[in-house]
Amino acid sequence: MDEIKVESLFEWLDRTTQIIHEQQDEPYLDSLAVTLETLFYQDVSAEIDDLLKYKLQSALKKVDLTTYQIEDIRKATQLAILKGMKGSTQQQHLMTPEAVALFVGYISEKLMKGKDKIRIFDLVSGTANLLLTVMNQLEQPAEAFASEIDPTLIKLGVLNANLQQKQVEFFHQDSLRPFLVDPIDLIIADLPVGYYPDDIRANDFQLSADKGHSYAHHLLIEQGMNYTKEAGYLIFVIPDFLFDSDQSDKLHAYIQEYAHIIGVIRLPESAFKSKKNVKSIFILQKKGKDTQGPKQPLLANLPSFNNTREMGDILDQMNGWFKQYI
């Protein structure tokens, strides 16, 4: 990845998005979707008025997409999305931190080693940055699926995948509704935390609450398990308090019955805005006929991502653990 290239493409995306934002009075993220569409098709939508069309055609002449690597495009797009999310008040308009996404990619690559082709599914894909980061780190081709209910986020996700030349099948739906997909090798999700409002749908899940609303983050773990093939893996970015909540006994029993706990990696506090937002990476394997859990699950507390010496030591230990486990 070339930092100068990333910066120049981000500046182009940001400038062009500002032009659309000012002209159409749309939110930044919606304007960014128009920018990405224009960049991908190298053309301006017929629905745009003449003045904006002229400005966008002029902007297109100043950028040559063929001079950028896929990873430059991913990073520049991510920076533009992050800028838009800072101005957005909606809770779901948050992105998995870059270092966390790279770490999920590292674990995915270890677990999928030696497989010819895999099927991967991000249950709550947002702008698809987590999914695309993981796909960029896998050594084998992946058949990819993503689900997202928010119309702005899924549009950005589709454009993000197109610009990075990645084939992803997107589902624009509530991620707790049924999917038409064959069993999956690897489920990933940065779990949104909160109550699920549809009590009738929640009742179809073993992890539904005995009374009141169920936790969406619990139901998504079960949903992931339902679509994972036997012996397949699930990697969740979870809140620190996952097993301390009032419905956690049920979750604990469910996981004991259907999965092997492969590991829990606590992410550094410095990666999050406040202590109460700290998350961990939770790794599961769906039980199958010939599966058995590791003798000792992988448990680690990550140092700050900026502390390269300590991070190097932890990675060495983790590499050793994976070598034994795989």
Rank of each mutant, 00 (worst) to 15 (best):
T38H: 09
L153K: 09
G312V: 07
Q296P: 08
G157N: 11
G293E: 08
D190R: 04
Q165H: 12
V63Y: 01
A76Y: 01
D198L: 01
M95E: 10
F322G: 02
Q206N: 12
A253M: 11
M318R: 05
A209Y: 02
E169L: 12
K295W: 11
D190Q: 05
S274V: 08
T228K: 03
E71P: 00
Q78P: 02
G105S: 04
M95D: 07
K229S: 07
R201Y: 00
R15N: 15
I283M: 13
S214I: 01
K166I: 05
N160S: 07
L302F: 08
L302I: 08
K287Y: 13
E3L: 15
K287Q: 14
I283H: 09
G194C: 06
T127D: 12
E143Y: 12
H213G: 04
F305D: 05
E139N: 11
D240G: 13
G157V: 10
K287L: 13
L102R: 07
A80D: 03
A46P: 13
N319S: 09
G293M: 09
I238S: 03
I326P: 05
E71Y: 01
D64N: 14
N306H: 13
G232A: 01
P141G: 04
R177I: 11
T17Q: 09
R309Q: 15
Q69C: 02
Q24M: 15
V34K: 12
V193Q: 05
E3A: 15
F40I: 06
I261C: 06
V34A: 09
Q256H: 06
E3H: 13
T291M: 08
N277T: 11
A128C: 11
V193F: 05
P197Y: 00
I4M: 14
D72M: 01
K83H: 10
I20A: 13
I4A: 15
F179P: 01
T308M: 13
A216G: 04
D316L: 14
F40A: 12
H172D: 05
L153N: 10
L191T: 04
L284V: 06
H218M: 00
V104T: 04
L102S: 12
H213D: 08
L163N: 01
W12T: 06
K273C: 00
Q247N: 05
Y258Q: 10
S58E: 11
I4K: 15
N301L: 14
A209W: 03
W321N: 10
D316W: 09
L32F: 06
T89L: 06
M1Q: 07
L186N: 00
L52W: 07
I149N: 12
I235A: 02
F170C: 00
L234W: 04
V34E: 10
T127K: 04
T16R: 06
Q137L: 12
L60H: 06
A259S: 12
A209V: 04
G320R: 14
K289S: 15
I238K: 04
S31H: 07
Q285M: 11
I188H: 01
A46D: 15
L180P: 00
I81R: 00
I154M: 03
F322P: 03
A231I: 05
K276F: 06
I107F: 11
D316N: 13
V104I: 06
I81M: 00
G87I: 14
E26W: 15
Q92Y: 10
G126F: 01
L315P: 08
G320L: 13
Q223W: 02
A76L: 03
R201D: 01
A99S: 09
E3S: 14
I235G: 03
F121S: 07
K275M: 11
L284N: 07
I19N: 12
I281N: 06
K83V: 02
K289V: 15
